[in-house]
Amino acid sequence: MTQTQTTATTEGADNEICLEARNLSVRYGKVQAVKDISLVVRARQVTALIGPSGCGKSTFLRAINRMNDLIPTCVVQGSVRLGETEIYDPAVEVEALRARIGMVFQKPNPFATSIYNNVAYGPRVQGLVRHRRETDERVEKSLRRAGLWDEVKDRLKESGTSLSGGQQQRLCIARAIAADPEVVLMDEPCSALDPIATARIEDLMDELRARYTIVIVTHSMQQAARVSKRTAFFLLGELVEEGATGEVFTNPQDERTLNYVTGRMG
């Protein structure tokens, strides 16, 4: 396993570490989905995880906010640190942890309630809002940041499922950032969207990275190249290569990465 840590020296301020996985392994029953991965995610950047289907990139992503806890057969070894917090410390309250790490899913999954309630859900369960005015403010702020405010400000009481697919996904992004997380995890957020909606989400990610650390799993190498600063290539549950996106795509250190990014494999 070759791990090239090509650090972008020109942007020294970007070197602040947000997330750090050390020797992380995830097993589903007898299947080892993630094998001994160590990866550093830098703050306020977009990091893309690429690789063929079943390579463990989604599992790795879901290990970061402990979504794998929901799967009874799942066993996690190793460590993930978010700032000073060890995520797998038994003393960590997983609900509070997930308030610090938002997540956006493959298919838009708005709740069967109003647009307003969708966005307010996180702040409400986290107890971040005490009365209506605070909730109003937070909902508006989140919708503005997700670039959806102008489209929905007059129909906040309408059902979230009445929006178009691209709008639904931006609603889900607004929902994910409403509780002021540090990290936003995105699991193939555009795979169910058309190219125009995809472009909007990609533009949005460009704006969001000023405030949030973004980790995105994507099947599209073009998307990884467009939106991310750093890219990690996963293969068969292993991390093959991680580096500045330009480097990984044009001058990969590992032959397997080269084969993948040039389309000879996967």
Binding site: N65, L97, R98, A99, F105, F111, A112, Y121, V125, Q126
Partner: peptide
């Protein structure tokens, strides 16, 4: 009720009961 809705709520830091009462039951 689609599993994706439960995941969405859990990812926002909801407890099992909050997921059940505020997302699954209304759906």
């Amino acid at each position: 009720v689609p599993q994706s809705l439960r995941e969405g709520a859990f990812a926002l830091g909801a407890t099992s009961f909050e997921v059940a009462s505020r997302v699954v039951l209304p759906t």
